[in-house]
Design a protein around this nucleic acid. Structure first.
Lengths: 241, 241
DNA sequence: GCTGGAAATTTGTCTGACAACCTGACAAAT
DNA sequence: ATTTGTCAGGTTGTCAGACAAATTTCCAGC
């Protein structure tokens, strides 16, 4: 058994009929088949059209309701919301290269803002956590170990130092989609090419700017770090593919 | 019938049993009653504990699945996800004053980033849309009409000019929570105090910076505009409450 | 034309049943 | 002793039918 849990298709539960139908209905709404205010087909019509039971249809519609795509009224029907899909913000699990670049850019905007705020608001405890994460990465760099976890902790420490829970939560949300890119930084190929060293140098610039409370420099360092991380990841992808 | 749709409690559908149970289970997970990896009570146990039918329990769990709180496996049970609630980003409908300030800050970070990118990437069509929205606000300002819609269009035009769909979608998501604050800018009280005029002056700075492609100035103008908007809104709240 | 109420329609909830799947225990074979 | 096969029980997934609750439609009656 591999030590790293492999996320193959078999170990994650297959999508049931309800989830599948929900996805199809969302696609229909996004495609414009149903516009805001329109009434969806009745449950019985959906039962006949998709050859499933009413329980499946109701599960699908329940999912659409939690995602804010539709609102249903007893006795009347289910109606597409005024702002379908805007009740929450979501990013697809699999992203094309062009989309990934855009998400990288979004992440950059957030990281820059957090770095600036962290420089203005950092407490002694924030500095201690930031320093600890940085030193852990340094040890991983010198010892040839995996510093991905310390890298996570480093960025989390910056988010904490910004003292804005919404900003931190959104950064954590975005970070999920970058586990692969963070892993690249600490792979043997990256060490050989000097990418890991370069990334750590960028981390140092960021730490120093935050320590001395220089918001402008912190923002600049964060901007450069994310931009370079994106470049390094895309270069690694090109080399591999 | 009022021209502005009033969102009273009566016209939006009451939460059903399924939605209620889902909310309670989410609260339990957030409170730590169930930790990541834990197995939820079986559907039959939930049926007995909450005195509802299995259909209601299944609707609640279906909602938890779409929100990424749990994953269920046929024959085994429903398990709390590793990162519960991080599958999507969501903001509560009703925010306390302190939370609203934080969300304002998050919005500011996004607006600054979009303004910078818009200055770098604006096309002729972007400029035309931006100009049209600004002129519409100007007319509303001079004619004493409501410019809230034009205000929306103005910020949407900046989002479009940034040429990043994820950034734009997130900005639109955030904008939903600021309809009240944008309305404040165009109320008679704001006109009397000069707030509306000040806001429009800030809009002009923003437009000019984007037109001449000055990213730094655009970012600065956006930062100032959002900060002032927050201050104006909080002042109006204090005056009213 | 308008009103009132019955009838039809639609979603919400309950109940029972079976299928698909997983888990653990036990027996059998190696 | 370890592995393998089998079985029984439990759990989620799906189906079917029924009734309750709320809305909409329609028509008789004025």
């Amino acid at each position: 058994m591999p030590s790293h849990p492999q996320s193959s298709d078999s170990d994650l539960p297959r999508a049931g009929l309800g989830a599948t139908l929900a996805a199809r209905l969302v696609a229909s709404i996004r495609a414009g088949d149903f516009k805001p205010g329109d009434r969806l087909p009745t449950e019985m019509q959906l039962v006949e059209r998709f050859s499933v039971s009413r329980a499946v249809v109701r599960e699908a519609i329940a999912r659409l309701k939690t995602d804010g795509f539709v609102e249903s009224r007893q006795g009347s029907g289910a109606f597409v919301s005024a702002k379908p899909g805007l009740a929450n913000f979501r990013i697809a699990n699999q992203l094309a290269a062009a989309d990934l670049a855009h998400v990288f850019e979004l992440r950059g905007v957030i990281e820059v803002g957090m770095a600036e705020l962290a420089a203005q608001r950092r407490s002694k405890a924030d500095i201690a956590a930031l320093d600890a994460a940085f030193m852990q990465m340094q040890q991983a760099l010198e010892g040839g170990q995996d510093g991905a976890d310390a890298d996570d902790a480093f960025h989390a420490a910056i988010a904490t130092a910004a003292h804005n829970p919404y900003l931190a939560q959104f950064a954590a949300f975005l970070a999920q989609h970058f586990s692969a890119t963070r892993a690249v930084t600490w792979q043997p190929e990256a060490r050989a090419s000097g990418s890991t060293l370069a990334a750590q140098a960028e981390h140092l610039d960021l730490v120093k700017a935050i320590l001395r409370g220089d918001a402008e420099a912190a923002g600049f360092a964060a901007r450069r770090h994310v931009a370079n991380a994106a470049a390094r990841y895309q270069a690694a992808q090109k080399k591999k593919g």
